Simulated assay, not measured.
Amino acid sequence: MTYSMTPRDLARRTSAAVDAAVEAGRDLGLTVTDARVLHDLFSVVVHLAPAPVVARVPTVLPPCTDLDSLADRQRAELDVTRWLADRGTPVIEPSPLVPPEPVRRDRFSMTFWRFVEEDRDKEPDYAANSESVADLHAAMRGYPGRLSFLSAAEPRSITEGLVLLEGHPDLIGPADLDRARREWRVLEPLVRSRAAFEEAFPGIELQPVHGDSPPANVFSGVDGDLYADFELVTLGPVEWDLAALGPDLESAYDRGARRNGMRTLNEDVLGFVNAVGMLRAITTLALVPQLPSLVEYLVPAVDQWREMPFAGGVAH
Score class of each variant (00 low, 15 high):
V53G: 01
E296N: 05
P208T: 13
P300I: 12
L147Q: 03
T234F: 02
M278K: 05
P58I: 05
A243E: 06
G29S: 10
R114W: 00
D66A: 03
S213R: 13
N217F: 02
A16H: 13
P215Q: 14
Y297T: 09
A152E: 09
A49D: 11
L147F: 07
N129V: 01
S43F: 07
A134F: 06
D303Q: 15
P100I: 00
L10I: 15
D248W: 01
R280F: 08
V163L: 10
P62H: 13
A244T: 11
S15Y: 06
V45W: 08
R26E: 15
N266R: 15
A153R: 04
G236N: 04
A134I: 08
S132P: 04
R259T: 10
P90V: 06
G145V: 01
E231S: 14
V22E: 13
V233L: 11
R182S: 00
S15Q: 15
A275C: 03
A301R: 14
R56A: 11
A153I: 02
V91T: 08
A275L: 03
V98G: 00
V238L: 05
P289E: 10
R255H: 07
V57H: 06
C64K: 01
L187H: 08
V209A: 01
H316W: 13
M278G: 06
N129S: 15
D34R: 14
R185T: 14
H316Q: 09
V91Y: 07
T2E: 13
V22D: 11
D119F: 05
T6Y: 00
Q207T: 14
G256E: 02
